[in-house]
Amino acid sequence: MLSRLKRASVENELLYLFLHSRVAQLAALISVLMMGAAALAAFVAPSNPYDLASFDLLDSLLPPSYMDGGDARFLIGTDDQGRDLLSAILYGTRLSLTVGLLSVAFASILGVTLGLMAGYLGGRFDTIVMRIADVQLSLPAILTALLIDGIARGILPQQRHDDLMLVVLTVAIGLSLWVNFARTARASTFVEKNKEYVQATQIMGMHPLRIMFVQILPNILGPIMVILTVDLAVAILLEATLSFLGVGVPPNQPSLGTLIRIGTEYLFSGEWWIVIFPSLTLVVLIVAVNVLGDFLRDALNPKLR
């Protein structure tokens, strides 16, 4: 009862701070709009960029419709295959967000589970998990993701690799981000496990798994939420970077990073729109998510208030 009351007040405070922060509201609005547009891409996009029949090579490299030589059908122009760039961006955003959300979900489930158990059980399990985390922290996330992708390339035959690309990408990004979740969950669990409510459940003879996931977990969600938001931005960025480097999603299903890579080849011949519009979309998306993350961090950190 007490903990429920406490949680309710934290939520109200969050709401209060949110209603008084214009920047956070704007960031939330942009994030929701972009996620909505991406989720409904199949309905709002003028055409389907994955459908080979829907575009024509004769339409390739057309400038935006407001420019000379533009075509009214293509609001912001077409890419090298004749795909409508706006549709490609909508579908690309959907892909980038899907990979981002899935890999953060994967990273958080893995990281929080390991961190919670390491913090609660302590001992040898804790040592092993934290040693693995140390090793991984000695490499930047982008390197880990690249490496896992490279390993998958070596193990899987080319065809299977292309089919499983999204899974490989999600696992690669997820595995490079779990450490943050594990460390945060572990540190918070250390604090929680010495509190009276946990001791009470221990005395009652509750199963350790139940104590961890039913009693402790809800009380350490605050800091985990912050990491979740911040890492979503990181995951979107990682996916875009991998796709840009040409080791991400297959080219017939372009994500924002792939579109930007294709666009750079046309930068010098004057077709700037292929690179500029996807880049702006990506930047706006990441800035919006980052601003939300910053807001959450400040709002949930009592030291800064």
């Binding site: 931005a233 960025l237 875009a240 970077t241 840009f244 930007i260 666009g263 750079t264 930068l267 010098f268 700037w272 690179v275 500029i276 880049s279 990506l282 930047v283 990441i286 800035v287 980052n290 601003v291 910053d294």
Partner: peptide
């Protein structure tokens, strides 16, 4: 700087190429 931290490195590079190179 908040915007700077959110722009992927490769996008910064491409914008610089576009402005100073192209």
């Amino acid at each position: 700087t908040l915007i700077g931290i959110s722009i992927p490195t490769f996008v910064i590079g491409i914008f610089l190429i576009f402005i100073f190179g192209v």
